[in-house]
Write a protein that binds this DNA or RNA. Structure first.
Lengths: 137, 137
DNA sequence: ATAAATGCAAAACTTTTGCACCCGA
DNA sequence: TCGGGTGCAAAAGTTTTGCATTTAT
């Protein structure tokens, strides 16, 4: 993974703005390809490479999160605040978990008991979303 | 993801046994390719496709776990008991978290507050392992 | 004997990258 | 103008799959 040079000046392109806008305007944790298709409605000749490059930059800027839970391809979350996710094992949809606070103390607990320097943690819940649950899958 | 047919009879192959043995004999959460190289020491002409196929079967049998945290490729864990993982963001090594109990009640809590049917959860901690921490990365 | 499992190679998929050109500051 | 960003296409890397053959039961 190549790191961005420190203090490298950064320009704003319509492509980057459009990608961020798409990501901010959905709660669906889309894949890079979905974002690509969505942005193409505005910028028809944008390339998938540009989408990937910008997702990497936006992630590095801390404006978005990359989720790599379960599936083959990454999903992106326009909300960079730490929060937990729920993945439906039937339909594959990803949801934000509501009503459960992020446990901030646990990082320190893990640090102390294992001699590591813990920065943060992720938690993903797996099960059936309400729709799939109704269908008795 | 194609599902295994229910009640489909299953045979034991040396390949499958060797793969499971390699996975049980390490704590290193290896990738499919690492497992492939390791099994080749015993069965030189085993194919990578067979490794992938068997990892999928073993996972479905509940004998191993697949980890998809952070990296591009999956890692496999010979311990199917639910436990948490720590990933070093510098060297990429994956460790089991010791001394922190798996929170079993939280699944029910998330279920109730979000109307989902939660089966289980994963938690991954990110930071520097003791070696990388020493190096002042 | 039967069909599950394998080895091999090709294919599928996601993601990255080299390069010439474009465009924002 | 300067070099960051883009589009395009090729490449890289992981995982899956089709098919003929092997092998466990």
């Amino acid at each position: 993974m190549r790191e961005r040079e420190i203090n490298k000046p950064m320009r704003n392109s319509r492509q980057r703005a459009a990608i961020l806008e798409v990501l901010k305007s959905t709660k669906s944790h889309p894949t890079a390809d979905w974002i690509y298709e969505k942005v193409r409605e505005k910028i028809p000749n944008i390339s998938l490479g540009t989408v990937y490059r910008n997702l990497a930059v936006l992630k590095e800027m801390g404006k978005i999160m990359e989720l790599k839970c379960g599936e083959k391809c990454s999903r992106y979350d326009g909300n960079p605040e730490n929060h937990y996710h729920f993945i439906c094992v039937n339909c594959g949809q990803v949801f934000d978990v509501e009503g459960v606070e992020v446990n901030k103390k646990i990082d320190q607990e893990v640090s102390e008991k294992n001699r590591w320097e813990v920065f943060h943690h992720c938690m993903e819940f797996y099960g059936l979303c309400s729709e799939c649950s109704k269908k008795n899958v």
